[in-house]
Design a protein around this nucleic acid. Structure first.
Length: 321
DNA sequence: CGCTTTTGACCGGCGC
DNA sequence: GCGCCGGTCAAAAGCG
């Protein structure tokens, strides 16, 4: 995948790969549901994923990963289209078989290219080009704030999911407000930008459908929630995470672009194709990184990964600078 | 009415 | 410096 060492992280680095035919697609109503975990476990997973835990916890302190580099697309005439192309490529070559996990800060469980890529790019230092403001909470203004010292614009940890789904916006228990949509270069499908509606929370996510395989939706989370899952949304968090089926949930978030229709309630029909961790252990590259990790945190971190490995064998993590 | 989505303008980084 | 590009803003429209 990273044929181009110089490339910043591209989604194709995900090593995306899966077997169309070998999966059956279970139905899930939420992220946690699809992970098939309890609330407790979810919290661990969430940390590992850089997502927010269900319980209120210390906000900005734990981010297993730091320093994200932004997914960038080749500006040169737009050859590369991030995910879309990448998916095609990787899917095609697929040297990476799905069951591998790279642990940030650790070397890896899978020696697959992913890792190499991560290194390369981190060295690359090509930061996020098209980045607007980053996790800043003052979302009101333009972004003209400067960073502290030599710290460049760092992004929050990002996690990308590739999910087979009919709907673009997957239910994950949080409430989001869409704040933008842009056309993806060589794709007929647009990319939508969402922000967590909880006031103090700066988590964002992007959703786009794969151009190569329109049945796949790529959701990229950025940042971590600092609050519990809102218990409102029809049913409540408990209903979402707790357990049983997913009966209600009324109208699915509308399948915007995807023409095909499908049974309404199953908007979360999905299975994971791949998961990408875009964070990185930046402690080395960014000395002044605000949040140091305690050994306890690291331990937790590893524990989370261990957990993930057990639970999500097909997940593939990747780190990036 | 309060919220969300829509949508074109705008911004800042980067390559040329 | 200019223009492309990904990402964001924000006014207006939409919806329950």
């Amino acid at each position: 995948m990273s044929d181009n060492p110089g490339d910043p992280f591209y989604y194709h680095d995900l090593g995306y790969r899966y077997n169309h035919s070998s999966y059956d697609a279970p139905q899930f109503t939420s992220f946690a549901d699809f992970l098939q975990v309890s609330n407790h476990d979810y919290n661990s997973l969430a940390r590992a994923f850089g997502l927010s835990p269900l319980s209120s916890t210390t906000p900005e302190l734990f981010s297993p990963f730091e320093n994200i580099s932004h997914v960038k697309q080749e500006t040169a005439g737009g050859g590369n289209e991030g995910f879309n192309n990448s998916i095609g490529e990787d899917g095609g070559n697929g040297h990476n078989n799905s069951n591998q996990v790279n642990i940030p800060g650790n070397s890896s469980i899978s020696s697959s290219s992913g890792e190499g890529v991560a290194e390369e790019e981190s060295s690359k230092g090509k930061k996020e080009a098209a980045q607007g403001e980053d996790g800043g909470e003052s979302s009101s203004k333009k972004q003209n704030k400067l960073k502290k010292q030599g710290e460049k614009k760092q992004r929050e940890p990002r996690v990308a999911f590739m999910t087979k789904s009919e709907v673009d916006h997957l239910e994950d228990g949080y409430r989001w407000r869409k704040y933008g949509q842009k056309a993806v270069k060589n794709s007929p499908y647009p990319r939508s930008y969402y922000r967590c509606t909880t006031q103090k929370c700066a988590v964002k996510k992007r959703v786009e459908r794969s151009f190569q395989d329109p049945t796949i939706v790529i959701t990229t989370y950025e940042g971590q929630h600092n609050h519990p899952i809102p218990a409102t949304l029809r049913g409540n968090a408990a209903g979402i995470f707790g357990h049983h089926h997913h009966s209600m949930m009324l109208a699915p978030p509308q399948p915007s672009i995807v023409p095909r229709s499908f049974p309404p309630p199953e908007f979360m029909s999905s299975y994971i194709m791949n998961i990408n961790q875009v964070g990185v252990s930046a402690t080395t590259s960014t000395p002044d990184y605000p949040q140091g990790r305690s050994s306890a945190q690291q331990q937790q971190f590893h524990d989370d990964y261990g957990l993930l490995q057990d639970m999500l064998p097909s997940v593939l993590f990747k780190q990036e600078e």
